[in-house]
Simulated assay, not measured.
Amino acid sequence: MVVAHVEQSTSAPKNRRGMSKKKARTAGTTPSQQVNGDEEMASEVIPPSNSNHTAEDDDLMIDANPTSALEESSVPSFQALPASAARSTLKSETRRIAIPPHRMTPIKKDWINIFSPLTEILGLQVRMNVQRRCVEIRTSKATKEIGALQKGADFVKAYALGFDDAIALLRMDDLYLDSFEIKDVKTLHGDHLSRAIGRIAGQEGKTKFTIENASRTRIVLADTKIHIMGSFQNIKIARDAIVSLILGSPPGKVYAGLRTVSSRMKQRAL
């Protein structure tokens, strides 16, 4: 006599419809078909570890030569746009440079020397507005460089400040203008201010010329305002020397410092 132990599951089936459909399918099949079906399900659920299908997939996923895909794809190559195309999209810009009243007469006398480099070298359009006491410049189709307008403005401003060799701003790229007043360094009044200006200029301009030659800059001393034209490092050297003179350092001490700086500049140039 065989006794079958039946274990009752405490949890109810989650999907009764799926189980009923499965029973209906298995009811109409023979035992041999049911066994074959179970084997197919087992083979689908648990694939063999050393199957050829996974090896082929790995071969497809990992390419031994990754550059082959790039070589096969045809990438279009375009030529660089000319400078004229970039200029055509930009609008004309205008700059207005104010001229001090005491510099209007010298600019009128040397007007030919001012507008000729601006039009020939930079390709700008220039005109003088006498009523407003300013010089107006703007770009045109003949303008070649993007920074031509800024160069032209610096040139006119330098000429208005009193630099006779301001044409160097158009021919060299690393020249700048720097301006400051004596009161920015130290507040002086009366005779103290006059003595500070005298120390900067020197006897017959000797001190100013020495600073210019040692630092390779150009200096314009206009009352209490000081304007320097040169490269960034040279402007710093000249400004430090002038600040020392304003604070009361004797010219001999400033000369000694300039000699040291000039010798270092010569060594760097070599």
Rank of each mutant, 00 (worst) to 15 (best):
A83S: 11
V130R: 06
A148I: 02
A142Q: 11
R16Y: 06
N213W: 03
L161R: 03
S140T: 15
F78H: 03
D164R: 13
R239F: 04
M61C: 07
K108V: 08
K157E: 07
F163G: 03
M1D: 06
V130L: 12
S179A: 11
D63V: 09
D173G: 07
E7Y: 07
Q33F: 06
A12W: 10
I167R: 10
E44F: 12
F163I: 02
K151N: 13
R199W: 10
Q34W: 07
L118A: 01
E120L: 07
K151I: 07
A27P: 03
G205I: 07
S179R: 13
M265Y: 11
F232E: 12
A269L: 06
S68G: 01
D110I: 01
S194V: 03
L70W: 02
I211A: 09
I97V: 15
Q131P: 02
S84V: 04
M104Y: 00
D173E: 07
H102D: 15
N52Y: 02
D59M: 13
K144F: 06
I237N: 11
K157G: 00
P76K: 09
F78L: 05
A160L: 02
S92A: 13
E181G: 11
P101M: 03
Q233W: 05
K108A: 13
M1A: 13
Q33Y: 05
P76E: 02
K91D: 13
E72W: 05
K108F: 13
K144W: 02
K206M: 09
D164A: 15
Q150F: 00
R216F: 07
D38G: 09
